[in-house]
Design a protein around this nucleic acid. Structure first.
Lengths: 211, 211
DNA sequence: GTCTATACTACGATAGAC
DNA sequence: GTCTATCGTAGTATAGAC
């Protein structure tokens, strides 16, 4: 399938070099086809970019047990909710261990910085669902009713996961390693897991002393 | 000063649109000069980009009390170290409240994703110093001797701060606001401050139960 | 030092052969 | 559907006037 190959290369190139930095010529050549096939299939560079965003959004929602985790949002047991939060974070860090994860992670990061319509499409899918699930799970796990407080907490958790991709250069310097290998990611995952428990416990304590 | 104005615009444009996305014509025009003055002063686009990186690095180290904070690295009092950690985080989030902070934050973010020589220059300055100071302060605040563990913890703290810029689009969606206004940042800073205490306390507990 | 002119290159889009 | 060939339009770089 030419189209699939085109999309894979597109995500890689757009992620690595950005919308302006990537060239349709290079993408087409790497996919082993002519540049004009991009025009034919996607109407042009912008169309390919949006299609690449949809492709990322699909892959983000597919091949995982995200539905199972999101089902647990229906729970009202704090321990179950906490386990679900851990599961989401672990799964995300697991994905990052894959080598080809770079492409889509960079693609999304760029969209986070200056969002275009492509971000809407990605967030409309699995990404938005998981973010909202995280907020709800925090409410359940801590007994906090205030959605605003839970959203702020969710952002602080997302940041701890995101940082390995968003600030990869700083991480490499700080850890004095050329690339974040799986062993280091595992160690970091353990740190984040402990942090999550500490933060959730703190939030429970905050709630109780407020009463 | 034409050169200073050129650098300010360059940071803004490169940050917003990336190295490839920004055009020397636009930058020169916005700075009220001819494009060829970029060639004259900086040798070309790449030279201007590196000069912009140096400019960012300088501003990052200047106009702040970072030296005062870094001096506190010399302390051996856990409470003082903890206060210093809080101070670093607060100062960073304070800066983000400024409107023009966007430019350099985006500039650095892009370099984090695909580091070039520009990142070396930025990290060689205040950024690297503060990162290392953070690690050391964590050691002092928790009594942890293991630098590796402290570095992992430092990354998790950096992530919580970084996320407001790195995942700004997600933050906006999650908080249902068009832009992260100062009031929200303050609320978030309070959350992060509580998180830091929770995490440091947890690390102290980990250390004690290990003994 | 700064600007105007121009040269050169690479890009995306398009038309048309097959 | 896919490729080749071409066009117009950015972009950077350079040379030379002032």
């Amino acid at each position: 399938m030419v189209q699939r190959r085109l999309l894979e290369i597109a995500v890689e190139q757009f992620g690595q070099r950005g919308l302006e930095g990537a060239s349709t010529r290079d993408i087409a050549a790497a996919a082993g086809t002519a540049m004009s096939s991009i025009t034919y299939h996607y109407g042009g560079k912008d169309g390919l970019y949006l299609a690449a965003a949809d492709f990322v959004a699909d892959q983000l929602g597919a091949d995982d047990d995200s539905e199972a985790i999101e089902e647990q949002t229906a729970t009202d047991d704090p321990a179950t909710a906490r386990a679900a939060i851990h599961a989401i974070v672990v799964r995300f860090l697991d994905r990052i261990k894959q080598r080809d994860a770079d492409s889509w992670a960079l693609f999304i990061m760029r969209e986070q910085m200056n969002p275009t319509e492509a971000f809407e499409r990605i967030y409309a899918g699995a990404m938005g669902r998981q973010s909202r699930a995280m907020v709800q799970l925090i409410c359940i796990a801590t007994g906090v009713k205030d959605g605003y407080a839970a959203r702020l907490a969710a952002i602080s958790l997302i940041g701890q996961v995101l940082v390995v991709k968003a600030a990869r250069a700083t991480c490499r310097r700080l850890l004095e390693c050329d690339q974040l290998n799986p062993a280091i990611i595992d160690d970091y995952a353990a740190r984040v897991a402990a942090n999550i428990d500490a933060i959730l416990d703190r939030m429970i304590a905050e709630r109780q002393e407020q009463a």
